[in-house]
């Protein structure tokens, strides 16, 4: 089964629930187990949260949107995130040391645990950032 669906979301924390609903609806169409669906929804929500938290840190926009595109082709799942926030400095994208227990820094760790690859690209206009998560399913 091949799938390609995308949706825009306002960049704020209240959108994260909608992001999860959108993602889950797509994964319900794919023959994968429930645990994997939960993990993929978590990875997508964490990536969207990072856009709200980091790319839009101190940017007060009530109108900017991010786009999430979920594609499946030949068992290769690709999830694209597009935003117009602050350019991501990939050198700063890292999770905390997992045995240094403190609040924060786990979202990126979850994403890396769940997905096969996490790649930041320069966004093509009008986008600033383009994050691509992939996983063979």
């Amino acid at each position: 089964m091949n799938i390609s669906e995308s949706k825009d979301f306002l960049v704020n924390s209240a959108s994260l629930k909608e992001v999860r609903i959108f993602s889950r609806e797509i994964f319900e169409k794919i023959d994968i187990n429930e645990d994997l669906k939960d993990e993929l929804v978590l990875a997508i929500a964490e990536a969207a949260q990072n856009i709200v938290k980091h790319a839009y840190k101190n940017i007060d926009s009530k109108t900017d949107k991010m786009e999430i595109k979920i594609s499946l082709k030949d068992s290769e799942l690709e999830i694209g995130f597009f935003d117009k926030g602050r350019p991501v400095d990939t050198a700063n994208v890292r999770h905390r040391k997992i045995d240094d227990v403190k609040p924060g820094g786990l979202g990126t760790f979850f994403i890396q645990q769940i997905m096969d690859a996490v790649v930041f690209k320069e966004g093509e206009k009008p986008w600033i950032n383009h994050l691509v998560l992939t996983k063979k399913i």
Binding site: L16, R20, L42, A45, E46, Q49, V101, K102, P103, G104, L106, G107, F109, F110
Partner: peptide, 15 residues
């Protein structure tokens, strides 16, 4: 459902 933000609340309250 709980994400990394929720986990942070658990860690913060525990600590």
């Amino acid at each position: 459902y709980m994400d990394s933000s929720g986990i942070s609340v658990l860690i913060e309250s525990h600590q």
